[in-house]
Design a protein around this nucleic acid. Structure first.
Length: 421
DNA sequence: TCTGGGGTCCTAGGACCC
DNA sequence: TCTGGGGTCCTAGGACCC
């Protein structure tokens, strides 16, 4: 059996941990630049705030229902996620951290145990130690745990947030209940295609000819179909180091100057290099892209990306930034209003072993230099030491009007508790 | 006025090899 | 009239996830 543990309304729940007065009240969390709604408490869902909607389009709803709004506080969510995962990891080492708020567990060798009780104790412990509510789905395959999780979410009272698919009858029953577009692995495109063929539920999908599925949905679709049929096909994936690392942002305004865009690309490249060093990797290739605001149909549009090979693997701020700017030069076109750029590094290899190049090699003096920069930035604040080509005054000019404190990640923001006798 | 950010995997087709 | 057969590697694009 597998279990899927899923934190409920995760970002909104994290905000409520430190603002318990907001329990029972509508809470939403906005994306960077306070752009879109990316997390909603149950109450916020109930008053009809859709996922992903631009905030300005639901301002009336916010006002009318006194919705509590937060700017995304990713350091807080990341830290809360680590705490939840640590607790789950203490239950079983067979765990795959699937996303910031979800984990799959493998329950091999648990046959003698009461799985229901086990799940209940897990749920209780996470709640007691972190105040984050979770939902648990349990089933013979990974894809079916997702379906079980849906059932538990839809009927929280009846299921007490835990649902187990044990029998073939239950498997068929829940698959007949779940709409095809709600099935994990079926996105908008596939749902449309399947509905056109008269497939409306998860169960319908399991009955389709595997040849058709393979042809139109590739082996990914085929694996999913088998998993839903109850044949274990997807296994826990041991999450290793990442294969790509991206730093991309939408700007708070449009940029037309090459110099401005270059500064942003440099800074994003530096952030990528820092992320690389954190996971002890170097990159051997890099992409950048630039884009105008695609929502502004009235403005001339230009979007382009480029990938370049680096002459040697590196994770130095200086080198990654240099190559990123080189790439930018190849695609930048003056006369457009740019709204978004990003840097993505690829072909990651461990930083303690690398192939020497015949022609050009990394500057080894950068290694101690980067270590020093990382140490200083860790001690005195992110981005205190920057490259000369980065904006020296700029902090992170993101619109974050309702940012919560870094309760668990910033010593000055740690909560004060007043104890009375 | 205002629309996020970070990932993964798979396939088809082109270019090339012997 | 009729022009082989078996590979690899790379990239762009499409699909999905949270």
């Amino acid at each position: 059996m597998f279990a899927l543990v899923d934190c409920n309304n995760f970002y909104a729940s994290c905000e409520r941990v430190f603002r318990p007065n907001l329990n029972g009240k509508p809470v939403v969390v906005l994306s960077n630049n306070d752009g879109c709604v990316i997390s909603r408490s149950q109450e916020a869902k109930a008053i009809g705030i859709p996922m992903g909607i631009p905030a300005y389009q639901v301002e009336d709803l916010f006002k009318k229902h006194e919705v509590h709004i937060f700017s995304a506080n990713f350091p807080l969510y990341g830290d809360m996620s680590n705490r939840v995962m640590d607790i789950l990891g203490s239950f079983t080492p067979d765990m795959e951290i699937y996303s910031i708020d979800e984990a799959f567990l493998k329950l091999d060798g648990f046959e003698h145990m009461n799985v229901q009780e086990y799940a209940t104790s897990m749920r209780r412990k996470v709640h007691q130690w972190t105040d984050i509510p979770v939902t648990i789905g349990i089933a013979p395959t990974k894809a079916l745990t997702k379906v079980a999780g849906h059932v538990a979410k839809r009927f929280p009272k009846k299921t007490d947030n835990i649902y187990i698919i044990r029998t073939e009858e239950q498997r068929i029953k829940v698959l007949k209940w779940i709409k095809i577009e709600e099935v994990w692995g079926i996105g908008r495109r596939y749902a449309k295609k399947l509905k056109a063929k008269g497939i409306h539920t998860g169960y319908d999908f399991t009955l389709m000819s595997s040849a058709w599925v393979k042809k139109h949905m590739s082996v990914t679709g085929l694996r999913l179909q088998q998993d839903l049929q109850g044949i274990p096909t997807l296994d826990l994936e041991q999450v290793q180091v990442k294969k790509n690392i991206a730093t991309t942002r939408t700007f708070e305004k449009n940029y037309t100057d090459y110099e401005d865009v270059k500064e942003r690309v440099t800074t994003f490249a530096v952030v990528c290099a820092e992320k690389l060093r954190k996971q002890h990797s170097c990159c051997s290739a890099l992409s950048i892209f630039i884009s105008t605001n695609r929502e502004r149909k009235d403005l001339p549009q230009y979007r382009r990306g480029i990938t370049i090979q680096l002459p040697f693997p590196t994770n130095s701020n200086i080198e990654v930034a240099r190559f990123a700017v080189l790439a930018l030069k190849k695609i930048f076109k003056p006369g457009y209003q740019y709204k978004r750029t990003g840097v993505i590094v690829h072909e990651l290899t461990p930083d303690d072993s690398w192939q020497q190049s015949l022609f050009e090699n990394r500057d080894e003096k950068h290694i101690p230099l980067m270590q020093t920069i990382d140490r200083l930035n860790a001690a005195y604040g992110q981005q205190k030491i920057r490259l000369g080509s980065q904006d020296q005054d700029r902090v992170w000019k993101m619109k974050q009007e309702r940012l919560s404190p870094g309760y668990t990640t910033k010593i000055s923001d740690v909560i004060t508790v007043n104890c009375r006798k």
